[in-house]
């Protein structure tokens, strides 16, 4: 536990200092959800109409939904990238060898390390749209946003489990770029963030149901449909996410131990 806290603290410290040293990037963290929403909204309304979107998506408040799903998209990117890309980044900058040979196990770096920074960036993604949500939906909208953030945090646990194994694989295949990079767009594609999941082929719909994000999207749809969302519709989604957290991490932890073993045997660099 001592190591877990130390790694979390160090990782968060690094993240905050990266933001401090790069104010432009920090600014764009606030700006990104709006940019994505603008892109979809701008493109969509030039090609069609927001009313059509509302009907097809079966939601009452499309603006709130587009803004919230843009933030969900960014949070998922940050969760998967922080976990799956972290080890590869260390390899690029030459610190992976030190991490592998230091006392905490690699899995602690891989799983625990990115948690605080990921929670923080998800928090920023969601709260950046708070002014717009308050404008369109009032205080109730703010409360709904808080609920979405809680769902993202719940989904983060199984997502980390998945990302850590795929991130570990990118160390084993020894590529220059992140071969695990397909994970984020794939999860987003099959989860139907901006469109109903039902328009996808049946196989992709089934695969999508195995990813936690689809339940966050489902919760967001419920929150964007009802003025006072019935909480009993959200409970089953919470249950599924908790179940996934336990199941996925139970299966993925041995996978990471295997990657650690491989890296220790073969070394970090190839040349």
């Amino acid at each position: 536990m001592r190591y877990v806290l130390a790694v979390m603290k160090a990782n968060f410290y690094l993240y905050i200092h990266e933001l401090k040293n790069n104010r432009g990037f920090a600014f764009f963290m606030l700006f990104w959800p709006y940019l994505i929403a603008f892109f979809l909204f701008g493109l969509g309304t030039m090609l069609g109409s927001i009313e059509e979107y509302s009907v097809r998506m079966n939601i009452a408040n499309p603006i709130l939904y587009i803004l919230a799903s843009s933030s969900i998209m960014l949070s998922s990117i940050s969760i998967v990238d922080n976990v799956a890309g972290e080890l590869l980044r260390h390899r690029w900058i030459g610190t992976l060898a030190y991490i592998v040979s230091s006392p905490p196990r690699l899995i602690i770096y891989a799983i625990a390390g990115p948690i605080p920074s990921t929670m923080f960036s998800s928090f920023i993604s969601l709260t950046s749209i708070l002014p717009a949500v308050l404008y369109f939906e009032g205080l109730l909208g703010g409360l709904k946003l808080f609920l979405i953030l809680m769902f993202i945090y719940l989904a983060m646990v199984p997502l980390i489990g998945l990302a850590v194994v795929v991130g570990g694989l990118s160390l084993v295949v020894r590529e220059e770029s992140n071969v695990a990079g397909f994970l984020t767009p794939f999860i987003l594609l099959v989860s139907g963030v901006f469109y109903p999941q039902t328009i996808l082929p049946y196989v992709l719909q089934l695969i999508g149901k195995a990813f936690p994000l689809v339940y966050v999207v489902e919760a967001t749809k419920i929150l964007a449909t009802y003025h006072y969302p019935p909480l009993n519709m959200l409970y089953p989604l919470i249950g599924i996410l908790i179940g996934m957290s336990i199941l996925y991490n139970l299966f993925t932890t041995p996978g990471m131990f295997l990657v650690e073993k491989k890296v220790l045997e073969r070394g970090v660099y190839e040349e």
């Binding site: 493109l43 969509g44 069609g48 590529e175 794939f186 963030v193 901006f194 109903p196």
Partner: peptide
Amino acid sequence: RYKYGFLNMILIDVMWYLIFLLGALMFVP
């Protein structure tokens, strides 16, 4: 040398385009 990365890039590109386009097509009558 980086063939997996190359294939990965293609896959990633395709998926990102589809995510936004399928979303945009929902606006179209």
